[in-house]
């Protein structure tokens, strides 16, 4: 497996993703600078978390114009697998590679803590190692993670199974008390219509080793087949 971790000015989870992919999963990994126009020879492209361009204007709003994004779009159109984590998810939404938008958390504060996620679709390339309904414990760390979209989009997401993860209680039930940022339908992660692009607010790269309190993130980054 060969993975690329894209580095924007202000990315700050690039190193964490790099080490998780290289040291835990044993992939070959390259950092790819935002100004690069090409992405060749990769099995996976990761847009890491952080504050690209200082979150100026809106999280992800400037990063979407970086030269590398044309390459990411082309890579995705060829069927390549792309994961956007946290700020990476925001960038994918801003770039139109994923539907919807991520807005200010409902409590208006940054939140960093472990949350519980329910796997809603276990047939995507990112979730084949899970079973539907399985509950994962993975940390979040964001100020702008409230997922919103229009009704038509929401209907499509549900019908096509593009909702991949939802925030839930430890037993897997859904309730507003366990939805940390007020996301519509408790959405924590969505895929595109062809399921090769995934965006999620929680940080799987921070949950790959027992010493950090959870290994549940490993299987999201571990691509089968």
């Amino acid at each position: 497996m060969k993975a690329a971790v894209v580095v924007f000015p202000g990315s700050n989870c690039d190193r964490d993703a790099y080490y998780a992919l290289r040291d835990v999963l044993g992939y070959e990994v390259d950092y790819v600078w935002h100004a690069e126009p090409r992405l060749n020879g990769y099995d996976l492209v990761v847009l890491p978390g952080g504050f690209s361009y200082g979150d100026y204007l809106r999280p992800g709003a400037i990063a979407r114009f970086a030269p590398i994004m044309d390459a990411v779009r082309a890579f995705a159109e060829r069927g390549g697998r792309v994961i956007g984590i946290c700020n990476g998810f925001q960038i994918l939404c801003e770039a139109g590679l994923l539907p919807g938008a991520l807005t200010r958390n409902i409590g208006l504060k940054f939140i960093c803590k472990h949350v519980y996620l329910r796997v809603e679709n276990d047939e995507t390339p990112f979730t084949r190692l899970f079973r539907k309904g399985e509950v994962l414990r993975i940390p979040i760390a964001h100020g702008d993670g409230r997922y919103v979209c229009d009704e038509v989009t929401m209907h499509q997401l549900e019908v096509r199974g593009q909702i991949v993860f939802r925030y839930c209680a430890p037993d897997g039930t859904l309730s507003e008390a366990w939805n940390p940022n007020g996301s519509m339908q408790a959405i924590a992660g969505v895929a595109n219509a062809t399921f090769n692009v995934l965006g999620l607010m929680p940080h799987p790269e921070r949950a790959c080793e027992a010493i950090l309190g959870s290994k549940d993130g490993r299987r999201i980054l571990q691509l089968s087949g």
Binding site: D16, Y19, K109, F110, K113, A141, E209, G213
Partner: peptide, 16 residues
């Protein structure tokens, strides 16, 4: 207070 701080970035925080 501390839930407003990212205490885990860097993936090195063993006891938060």
């Amino acid at each position: 207070v501390y839930e407003q701080y990212d205490w885990l970035v860097g993936a090195q925080t063993v006891l938060p």
